[in-house]
Nucleic acid binder design. Sequence first.
DNA 1: CCAACTACCTTTTTATACAAGGTACTGTAT
DNA 2: ATACAGTACCTTGTATAAAAAGGTAGTTGG
Lengths: 116, 116
Amino acid sequence: MSLDHSLNLENTRAQMRKGSLEYCILLVISRKKVYASDIISALKHADMLVVEGTLYPLLSRLKNAGLLDYHWQESKSGPPRKYYELTLLGRGVLKQLDSTWENLQSSINALREARR
Amino acid sequence: MSLDHSLNLENTRAQMRKGSLEYCILLVISRKKVYASDIISALKHADMLVVEGTLYPLLSRLKNAGLLDYHWQESKSGPPRKYYELTLLGRGVLKQLDSTWENLQSSINALREARR
DNA sequence: CCAACTACCTTTTTATACAAGGTACTGTAT
DNA sequence: ATACAGTACCTTGTATAAAAAGGTAGTTGG
């Protein structure tokens, strides 16, 4: 209501987080076998909100790309869960994303320091 | 053609860069008055590719949001250029994006370190 | 005066995050 | 046994935004 501007700060912040979402998800899965809710909790804890409607299609894409694998596992309370883990390919890709992230950090921090 | 996978590494890397694009553009403009080609060069130099079709609409959005202002300036060789600079509001937003970036770095680096 | 260059901008396509809605299995209380 | 509450999975529709491609116009040099 107050803004007819087509851009707002919260949106820009969200964009920054979204960019690294895939990387973060791979990071979470690399730590241990997890199912969807685990991932959502872990990312919420790291201030990287994700919702189901975002996560499920993304997990499917990563699975189809061969970065992830899953197996069903019974739960003590509720329906069975899909536990995901990284494939060998997934670990390789993650390693490459690590350096992408490091490069991005360097680039941006260089731009930041170039200010008076 | 060669990939039936709906995901590829270069795409993911591009996504990571895209997320912070707006921030980087504001950083570049904060250093000194620049026109579109200056921004493209600066970002290319920092490994953050942008093309015209991305940049012009983004500059318009930032202008409409009141973060930027511009003035026309003659060129020695070619048509006149639009030189952009940050408004007071723009500087304020940039300051907030600085802390967004710092938080993002912390969050992701925490996830990274939590690996064995 | 015409071609090459530079600069600005728009239109179309494609990708993707999110909201919302839907299915199904489990355990608990009536 | 039946119904409902809770959890988990997934899909569909919408909006945003980057990128590709195409378009307009001013300037310089031949």
